[in-house]
Design a protein around this nucleic acid. Structure first.
Length: 584
RNA sequence: GGAGGCGUGGUGUAGUUGGUUAACAUAACGCCCUGUCACGGCGUAGAUCACGGGUUCGAGCCCCGUCGCCUCCGCCA
């Protein structure tokens, strides 16, 4: 068989009538009219219609075809009559008259149909992912992913970045997520860890004088899964020497712009707006705000302090903030109660109807004073509380109102940088300070003196890139001086001995001349998800896991043979040890 | 670990205040059909109503528990 003759269905659209072609693919749909048989052949590029008349040698075989059979068709291209043209299909102006039809493989009726676009239970889709991936939308998603990979590699390579690979079998590191461990056979009782990111290696590459590094790298974090989180995910990891924040941010912008314009086809500006972490929290109640719609959090503490609503006045006197969201529509009392319940924010509300102040605060206001508070139109939702945790609840409420009130222009796409994150935050559970980003992030120069005395006030050289409310990239300028690194370790409760034990190799490397350096990592799956218009990253990963971490296709994770465990020197404990109080 | 939603023929769904034979679409199978393209028409077959227990004369429906899937919180430097 000479497959080089084979044409894609896409190529057929260009062909002249009368040409003989060879195509091959799957039977997409089959329409049998007794005396006339149509079937559509689907390949990666699309579908094309084949017409078979009773006088055709292939008629009997064509009549007996079934969906998803694999066929090969040698045929003459024919232009359809005007009335028969189907404008919905790229090849809708032509059809094929077979001279030879061969069944290459028969197929069982598929449990999930590649020819259907309806919703199907996801575990069933994943169990038969090879069928699910035949659907045109999934093939498009994988193509977008491919194009994004190629564009990223080209853009970075053109700017002098080298793609350097780093190990997957590496050492477990403290901080951050749970590690995936890999037992060592050669050194029984010891373990490798799969990398949560190549963070330490890319810094070593900077010490090594590579200057510009990138990698498309799989990262592993053993934490609960979400719509935008898998145990295994892909980063476009970048690091560069002799740079400051603006250099990496400009680089990240360049890459994001290239991807958005070339792959997604979006019109995005050359550079993106920047807001500080503080502004993001105060205005949107999130460090990854969706800025495609307004309805910012408004601080009404000063107004509330005038005492016209006693309980809000008291809240302000107690050191709380009074904030509001101005929803442009009307809400019922029941809806507000429901929102209050769901958001865990004690919500009051105020609106003006027929010249009268209404809502739970209506009795404290006349129409004029309600307008002063901002309730001229729509509904003012008012809550009070303290701290960023409170603002985050209000931010979640803002998002929900945005979605349910249809305030988000879903066809628009907006990048925004968030900068000046806190360097450290207090972990109440472990009663210690911890790094917000990671312990190698440099503090802002002017804040560095405060690390020991006012750790909560120290800002860092971290920057996150946010797209439509999703964090799609994050990075920082790193600490390249050993003394500063040791101060940070000390502040997060890592003793000199512990630090030496865990990061010996990095600290040692820094003694041999470390250049100033910094970098950024793009969450590739999330970025592709958004560019493909999907709502979970599973739609842009060929073989993802369910949110339980199970792969219904392979059955992973599975038990392993006792002999394998013995070889590794591992004994498995029963999954649930009976408690002391249980009757044995 | 917690909250919410869901679980009914292969697939997607309906199923009222508990009542006889669990309905519809689609896929499958058979017959008919010469211009369809989500083809159409007629017919056939296909369900332990996720699993276990309970209430009841009677449970797909009510109650309790378990399991699975999805979303969110915690967690994810």
């Amino acid at each position: 068989m000479d497959w080089t003759q084979r044409k894609s269905t896409e190529q057929l659209a260009q062909m002249a009538a009368g040409e003989t072609v060879l195509i091959a693919g799957w039977v997409h749909r089959h329409r049998h009219h007794g005396g006339l048989v149509f079937f559509d052949v689907r390949d990666r590029s699309g579908v094309v219609q084949v017409v078979v008349r009773p006088d055709n040698r292939a008629f009997a075989l064509a009549a007996s075809l079934h969906p998803e059979w694999v066929v090969q068709v040698r045929a003459v291209v024919q232009h359809r009559e005007k009335a028969a043209v189907n404008p919905k299909i790229a090849t809708g102006h032509i059809e094929l008259i077979p001279t030879e039809l061969t069944v290459l493989a028969e197929a069982l009726p598929p449990p999930v149909s590649p020819a259907d676009e309806g919703e199907v239970d996801e575990s069933l889709r994943l169990r038969h992912r090879y069928l699910d991936l035949r659907r045109p939308v999934m093939q498009r998603n994988l193509e977008i992913r491919h194009q994004a990979l190629q564009t990223a590699r080209r853009v970075l390579s053109e700017q002098g970045f080298w793609e350097v690979e780093t190990p997957n079998l590496t050492r477990s590191t403290p901080e951050g997520a749970r590690d995936f461990l890999v037992p060592s056979r050669l050194a029984k009782g010891r373990f490798y860890a799969l990398p949560q990111s190549p963070q330490l290696f890319k810094q070593l590459l900077m010490v090594a004088g590579i200057e510009r590094y990138f990698q498309v790298v799989h990262c592993f974090r053993d934490e609960d899964l979400r719509a935008d989180r898998q145990l295994e995910f892909v980063q476009i990891d970048i690091e560069q020497s002799f740079v400051d924040r603006q250099d990496i941010m400009r680089l990240g912008e360049g890459l994001a712009v290239a991807l958005a314009r070339e792959v997604a086809g979006w019109a995005v500006p050359e550079s993106f707006p920047r807001i500080t972490y503080r502004e993001a929290m105060d205005r949107y109640g999130s460090d990854h705000p969706d800025v495609r719609f307004g309805m910012p959090i408004v601080d009404l503490s000063e107004r509330a302090a005038d005492g016209c609503v006693p309980f809000l006045d008291q809240a302000v006197k107690a050191g709380e903030r009074v904030v509001a969201l101005h929803f442009p529509g009307s809400l019922s009392r029941k809806q507000v109660e429901e929102l209050s319940q769901a958001s865990a924010v004690d919500l009051a509300w105020l609106t003006v109807e027929e010249g009268q102040a209404k809502g739970s605060l209506g009795r404290f206001f006349d129409a004029e004073s309600a307008q002063l508070w901002g309730a001229a139109s729509g509904t003012l939702l008012i809550g009070h509380g303290v701290g960023d945790a409170f603002l985050q609840k209000v931010g979640a409420l803002r998002l929900r109102l945005g979605r349910e009130g249809d305030l988000i222009p879903s066809r628009r796409h907006e990048f925004v940088w968030v900068t000046d994150f806190p360097l450290l935050d207090w972990n109440a559970e472990d009663a210690r300070w911890q790094a917000v980003h990671h312990p190698f992030t440099a503090p802002l120069d002017e804040d560095a003196p405060n690390i020991e005395r006012h750790p909560a006030e120290v800002r860092s050289k971290q920057y996150d890139l946010v797209l439509d409310g999703h964090e799609v990239a994050g990075g920082s300028i790193r600490i390249h001086q050993r003394e500063m690194q040791e101060r940070i370790f000390a502040q997060i409760g890592l003793s000199a001995e512990e630090a030496a034990e865990k990061f010996q190799f990095l600290l040692e490397a820094f003694r041999y001349g470390a250049p100033p350096h910094g970098g950024i990592a793009f969450g590739f799956d999330r970025l592709v998800m958004l560019m493909a218009g999907m709502t979970t990253i599973r739609e842009v990963i060929a073989f993802p896991l369910l949110s339980s971490g199970v792969d219904p296709l392979t059955g992973a994770p599975t038990a392993v043979a006792e002999s394998q465990l013995r070889e590794l020197g591992i004994a498995v404990r029963p999954p649930t040890a009976p408690g002391r109080g249980d009757l044995a």
